[in-house]
Design a protein around this nucleic acid. Structure first.
Lengths: 205, 205
DNA sequence: TAGATTGTTAATCGATTAACAATC
DNA sequence: TAGATTGTTAATCGATTAACAATC
């Protein structure tokens, strides 16, 4: 175990391992090897062993890794051994789809609040909560202590909403708006822009 | 100009530059510098210059880059100087949201077809097309010559749908299903799984 | 001209791979 | 035991940064 500075690129691979392990577990497997896991995610066996060994000795020579044990360890490391409440900002098509997304269950997250600035949407029920007025983002999110938000507003409103979220104490933003946003350096942003991902593939067509 | 083998990591940054340039253009700017662009996207100025110079000499000493010229060049390189028709597979919440997403316009893509296997959805109108039977994916997509698909089915059906798409001639899949999929090596996959992206940030909370 | 900024080279830094002793 | 697979080291590979001549 050498818990020094773990490079972000390794942290980024852990959720991918976790997802592949889930797939193996769903298929009924109890153990796996770095070779098998590597083939599943397209990463070399050596790299997988090296990544995992940053955090401890979780495998056994000759037999590989216990899937449930390794999943538990990865969940601990990634802090998804608990349930994080998340807030959705912007209840358009994507926000509503995410409010009803059932893929959060058992993976560490639960949608707890949603906001919009459209009076026709405010007060309506979405999944198991009421859509709140976007003007109250700062009060509501800071009162609830929510640290994670899904930003689903149009590109033109994204920066303003991001500013509100930062002031509310949010430290992790998943940005579905197709635009870059600027945030304080203690706030992390991940971009989910279908066009950017598609443009990365058209080069090879 | 040294158009040899361009590393994928550079190709992956070009759409990010393009998106930031769009933001500058929207704000009325005509030129920018590697320093300004770098601050916007969080990448060093040296790296931006190096990335861009892989494809030609698009800047001018002293004044930087013409935004519209550089955007044209990046669009050429990424092959989004045209409009690619894309197919949506799975018209649940996310598929429907993407069918109505207006962020594709002017960025190289247009949703041309959609599929589902639910009889209640087949034949219904979504945006400007009719939802087709998922059983016809191979025929319809290959007949239309579509090369790009958005995979929006549940995790359990993702692999089967991916197999159909590969057989239909699709070469680029944007996978919204929260599971890894295996595809022939001439097919590219990008993953858009909100949980994976969120789990990458919780480590730092 | 003077100031600014590119394109490019060389140096640095970091990530990946190959190999293998240890051991289940 | 024999075979399999880990954890780790050293070597390789590739990406990033710093620096600066060229030049707009």
């Amino acid at each position: 175990m050498t818990t020094e500075k773990i490079p972000d690129i390794i942290i980024g691979r852990l959720p991918i391992y976790l997802r592949a392990l889930q797939r193996l577990a769903d298929a009924g497997a109890l153990t796996t090897s770095s070779r098998e896991l590597g083939e599943l995610v397209g990463i070399s066996a050596a790299q997988i062993r090296k990544d995992i060994s940053q955090f401890g000795e979780f495998g056994k020579q000759g037999t590989g890794y216990s899937i449930s044990f390794l999943m538990d360890k990865l969940r601990d490391i990634l802090k998804v051994d608990r349930v994080w409440e998340i807030a959705i900002v912007g209840m358009g098509g994507i926000g509503q789809a995410l409010a009803h997304f059932n893929g959060f269950v058992d993976r560490g997250f639960r949608v707890g609040m949603a906001f919009d600035n459209d009076p026709k949407k405010i007060g309506r029920k979405a999944a198991d909560f009421i859509v709140l007025d976007a003007a109250t983002i700062e009060d509501e999110i800071s009162a609830r202590g929510i640290k994670i938000a899904l930003l689903c507003v149009p590109a033109a409103s994204a920066q303003e909403a991001a500013d509100q979220l930062a002031r509310a104490g949010v430290k992790a933003i998943l940005n579905y708006a197709p635009t870059s946003i600027s945030v304080p350096e203690d706030v992390r942003v991940q971009y989910i822009d279908p066009v950017t991902h598609l443009q990365r593939m058209t080069y090879y067509l």
